[in-house]
Amino acid sequence: MKKIIKTGNLKFLPLLLLFFMGSECFAQYGYGRGGYGYGRGGYGYGRQRNPIPQAQAEPKAPEPKTAEQIVDAEMPSITEALGLNEFETAILSSVLKKYVQERIEAQILKLPPDKMRELYESITKRQDEELKAGLPLEKYEAFVALQKNGVSKTIKQKKKAKKKKRKKDKA
């Protein structure tokens, strides 16, 4: 009976030795992936490259702005250029939103150029009449000049006029 136990231990000992040596080798030499202790052989470091080409997603076309967004973006500079109070700003904003919306709708119709010009002229005429009725005369005239010259030029002219006035006051 003692011979059976000794023979069993002898078979078990080489298996145990092989098991521990095998795990030690994998631990030292990069888990068997060809690294030999110099990292992981390119596995797991840096950006991984996929051999399958990726389809490029088409960039979305920017959504057209609404009349309200267009007017709200321009109102601070118009208010600064004309020196409007809150009531006048509200009137101007509501009128501009209404008629900018009409212009956008006219563009969607894609009419022939001569009819488009007539439609734009009628929209501008109605807008001017409504603004003339809602704003004081000097503010209305300043707005018409602003449309003719542009916002940035009007602001520059206003600043120059203030500087000249300050120079005269100092002298």
Rank of each mutant, 00 (worst) to 15 (best):
L131C: 12
E63L: 12
K168W: 13
I108E: 07
C25N: 06
E102L: 09
P64A: 08
L18K: 05
K139V: 03
K165W: 04
A161R: 14
Y99C: 04
D169V: 05
T89W: 05
A142H: 14
Y43P: 04
Q56V: 12
Y36L: 02
T89P: 01
G46D: 07
G42R: 15
S77F: 10
E130Q: 15
R40P: 00
A142G: 15
I91V: 06
Q101G: 02
A57L: 09
Q48A: 14
N9M: 07
D72G: 06
F143D: 00
Y43Q: 05
V100F: 01
R103G: 02
Q101C: 00
K115Q: 12
A81Y: 02
P76V: 09
F19V: 00
I104H: 02
I123V: 06
A171F: 04
L146A: 11
K163N: 06
E129Y: 12
G32Y: 09
I108L: 11
L10M: 07
T154H: 12
L17V: 11
K153H: 07
A61G: 04
R40W: 15
P62L: 06
F12E: 01
G34V: 10
I104F: 02
A171E: 05
T79Y: 02
G150T: 08
K160P: 00
I108Y: 15
K132Q: 13
R49Q: 06
P136K: 15
V71H: 02
F12W: 13
P136A: 11
A145M: 08
E105A: 05
K153N: 06
Q107L: 10
G44K: 11
I4W: 14
F19K: 03
T79K: 13
L96M: 08
K163C: 03
P14F: 08
Q48F: 00
K132W: 09
T66Q: 01
I155F: 11
A171L: 10
R103N: 06
P62R: 08
V100T: 14
G41S: 10
P112T: 15
A90F: 06
L109S: 10
E88I: 11
E138M: 13
K11W: 09
I5W: 08
L119C: 07
I104S: 01
A145I: 03
K139L: 02
G37K: 07
K115F: 14
P62S: 14
K98M: 01
Q28K: 15
I78V: 12
Q127S: 09
G22V: 04
A81C: 02
E105I: 01
E74D: 08
I108F: 12
T79F: 03
K162Q: 07
G46R: 10
L15A: 13
K153I: 04
A67D: 01
P14N: 07
M75I: 11
S23W: 07
T124W: 15
Y120R: 04
E88K: 12
E102W: 07
G34T: 13
G41F: 15
L16T: 14
E138N: 15
T7K: 01
G150V: 06
E86K: 15
M75T: 12
K2M: 05
A133Y: 12
K165C: 00
E63W: 02
L15Q: 04
L146F: 11
G42P: 07
D169P: 00
K160I: 06
L84R: 01
K115G: 00
G83L: 05
I123M: 04
